[in-house]
Amino acid sequence: MARTRMACRECHFVNDPDAQSCELCGSSSLTEDWSGYVVITHPEQSEVAEEMNVTDPGGYALKVR
C-alpha cells in the first residue's frame, strides 16, 4: 500500500511521504490531510500560480487542513 504524500501547511508544496520538513520552504508543519493536486510548470505564466502565490515549479495541494 502506498503511503500518502505530505502537504506543507505553509506553502502547500506536496512532499514525499517520509519528509520531516518541506523541501520547498523548510517548514516542519506537514500534513496528510490535504486534497486537490495541481502541477505548476511555469509559475511566471500561470494565473493559478499567481492566485496561490506560487513562484516555484512543482506539485501543490489545493486545500490543506
Rank of each mutant, 00 (worst) to 15 (best):
M1E: 12
A2F: 12
A2W: 11
A2Q: 12
R3G: 11
T4A: 12
T4Y: 05
R5T: 09
M6P: 00
M6Q: 15
A7K: 01
C8K: 05
R9S: 09
E10A: 12
E10H: 11
E10Y: 09
C11G: 02
C11P: 02
C11N: 04
C11W: 05
V14S: 02
V14T: 03
N15F: 04
N15C: 04
N15I: 04
N15T: 00
D16N: 12
P17V: 05
D18H: 13
D18M: 10
D18R: 08
A19I: 01
A19R: 02
A19C: 06
S21W: 02
E23P: 01
L24W: 08
L24M: 10
C25S: 07
C25M: 02
C25R: 03
G26N: 02
S27F: 06
S28D: 15
S29E: 15
S29W: 09
L30P: 02
L30H: 07
T31L: 06
T31R: 01
D33S: 15
D33L: 12
W34G: 01
W34Q: 00
W34H: 11
W34P: 01
S35C: 10
S35Y: 11
G36Y: 07
Y37I: 15
V38N: 07
V38F: 04
V39N: 13
V39R: 15
T41D: 11
H42S: 14
H42M: 12
H42R: 14
E44I: 03
E44A: 12
E44W: 09
E44R: 12
Q45W: 10
S46D: 08
A49W: 06
A49H: 07
E50I: 02
M52C: 07
V54H: 01
D56H: 14
P57E: 06
G58N: 04
G58H: 04
G59A: 13
G59T: 06
G59D: 09
G59R: 05
Y60E: 07
Y60T: 06
Y60L: 09
A61S: 06
L62H: 08
V64Q: 00
R65H: 14
R65D: 15
